[in-house]
């Protein structure tokens, strides 16, 4: 099961890399969103997928599943949600102000 999920992580990273390397602002932003999902899945897999019972003493005799990766992912998801929201707004403002969403034209000149 772990290998399958890791393959999925690989696919997500590949998709994200493709998107980030493109020249359109919106694609790059979507790429970073996909990238963060890949990282979350990776953390989940690294902690080991479901191996035991609910980690509550008294509910079951164990062995227990490691609950920590889920706590980590929850935090990371919230952060990446906030960052993605911010960067979408920033991208929109940059598009409005600069009049373009192409990175070629957002490069800037050397004499500024």
């Amino acid at each position: 099961m772990e290998s399958l999920i890791l393959l999925l992580v690989g696919v997500l990273v590949a998709v994200a890399t493709y998107l980030i390397l493109s020249k359109q602002l919106l694609r790059v932003i979507l790429g970073t969103a996909v990238l963060s999902h890949a990282a979350h899945l990776l953390i989940l897999t690294m902690g080991g997928l479901k191996k035991g019972d609910v980690p509550l003493i008294g509910e079951s005799a164990g062995p227990y599943t490691d609950a920590l990766p889920q706590a980590l992912i929850l935090t990371a998801i919230v952060i990446s949600f906030a960052v993605t929201a911010f960067v979408l707004v920033l991208g929109y403002r940059a598009y409005k102000t600069n009049g373009t969403g192409e990175f070629d034209e957002l490069r800037g000149t050397s004499d500024e």
């Binding site: 790059v28 932003i29 991208g91």
Partner: peptide, 9 residues
């Protein structure tokens, strides 16, 4: 905004 975008990304 242009530079901020690069910094953020």
């Amino acid at each position: 905004l242009r530079e901020a975008l690069k910094y953020v990304l």
